[in-house]
Amino acid sequence: MSNPLPVTIIMIEDDLGHARLIEKNIRRAGISNHITHFDNGTAALEFLFNPTQDPARRGPVLILLDLNLPDMSGTAVLARIKEAPELHRTPVVVLTTTDDRVEIQRCYDLGCNVYITKPVNYESFAEAIRQLGLFLSVIQIPESGG
């Protein structure tokens, strides 16, 4: 563990503006990990579950997930990830405009690790992202498939 594999951030976000803002703030928070962006759930799941991809080569991942996706609901993506034995320990950060208590509870029930509401107030949003950076530096990201 002295030389862990770099964590890849997989961002599943259909709104390009949001994606750009998230990325900007992550970088601003001093996190330089590679970010792979998907604008729909199908492509993201394809990437995550593609058996031809060598998980070891891909390295450990952290998923940033938006709940409003064009092709499928974010909670469905979350459920798929948490059901899969090789992925269920992957940390998932849910990012969404929803602050509905029921939906938040559902995300936690499905096994999401952090839930961040996208605030319209930009400062608090940036703050949330910075906290995410902190979260990234603290957590022990497990070996993929481990």
């Binding site: 409003n68 319209v120 930009y122």
Partner: peptide, 17 residues
């Protein structure tokens, strides 16, 4: 309200930018 909020996040975010 949700879908209105989504672009608003962009407006606010990029205004800050």
């Amino acid at each position: 309200s949700h879908d209105l909020r989504s672009p608003l996040v962009n407006v606010m975010g990029f205004t800050s930018e």
